[in-house]
Design a protein around this nucleic acid. Sequence first.
DNA 1: AATGAGGCATGACAAATGTCATGTCGGTTC
DNA 2: GAACCGACATGACATTTGTCATGCCTCATT
Lengths: 203, 203
Amino acid sequence: MSIRLVIADDQALVRGALAALLGLEPDIEVVAELGDGTGVAAAVVEHSADVAMLDVEMPGLDGISAAAAVRRAAPQCRVLMVTTFGRPGYLKRAMQAGASGFVVKDTPARQLAEAVRRVHQGLRVVDPVLAAESLTAGDSPLTEREGEVLKAASDGGTVADIAKSAMLSEGTVRNYLSAAMAKTGGRTRAEAVRIAEDNGWLL
Amino acid sequence: MSIRLVIADDQALVRGALAALLGLEPDIEVVAELGDGTGVAAAVVEHSADVAMLDVEMPGLDGISAAAAVRRAAPQCRVLMVTTFGRPGYLKRAMQAGASGFVVKDTPARQLAEAVRRVHQGLRVVDPVLAAESLTAGDSPLTEREGEVLKAASDGGTVADIAKSAMLSEGTVRNYLSAAMAKTGGRTRAEAVRIAEDNGWLL
DNA sequence: AATGAGGCATGACAAATGTCATGTCGGTTC
DNA sequence: GAACCGACATGACATTTGTCATGCCTCATT
């Protein structure tokens, strides 16, 4: 009885490579490949998949939301997150969203297949380097609103824009940005955005 | 006589996938794989490669500089650029640096192999979608200094930082940023940076 | 019930940023 | 050679941004 696997990744080349490499394993069968997160839960149900391998960064529905959707729609299906960048914050959020494993993309193919098997058996798989970083970097220090405002700022809008879209006074927006800068250690808004992104605090 | 190919890409999975896919072709032989741009020219010389396949975004030496280095060190070796994002500006700069081809990563494997062959024969290969975008978006409107300052700003530094590192007065820096914003159409520094990056004007 | 901690929200003030008018230099055009 | 154009460079001025003191509200603790 082979493991039925669904793969979602926006980069066609990576998706194809993953499918080809893992499909070679005798005990793994790739039943669906998706280019974004929106259809993942449906595909899992349709093909009664055992494991879903999801990229964190995807257009449409992001990987973490997709993971949550999969868990809701098919609780028996395990989720293994695969990511290009090892942002520590993603790890914790993915786990909270119900993922069973979290590995980075340049893991050797053998270990990827092994990770799929472990996850299928109900074990947890976490890249050790990332786990260590996660402990060091810890959670996001930003409050909900702070993160919200900083995310809006990351699109390059002015304070006035953000204030309007978030229904806040301009002063309040500045205050949140100021707090975000203090907490991230950045000296400018742009720096704060960069630091928060690098740590996976924005998504 | 098979085509001797060198592959450089920072993502191990992609690099492996490219090597595996292209190595399957009977007339292509992958003689070296690199994870960054610094050693590419040396590897090309050492293995007397016919074609170098380079990613644009790489740590260390970027793909475009690496392309130029390859052309200098081994003029008979053709360069094929492969990129994740189709930034129009990269295309032109890559061509000026001596590349013979430019394709995006989610091109089907067959066409990638075909692109390698065409390049090897001395033909030029350009992704048609990208070529069209390149004509629309055109060249970077930024002058040398404007680009330089905008690039410095993209790292999140303050005006004072940039002024010091570029040996310019603060007023001058502000002026360049202002010009860059006007030319990109961005209303803030951050927006200008984003637009310039998306168009491949910064690298 | 009182206390205190923390998130949310705001406005006044200081500091940084963005805009503009101006000037120099080197190359092109007439 | 004169006139012109564009890139480079600067300082003065208006606008925007970042900091701070303050107040309100909720929730957990005493």
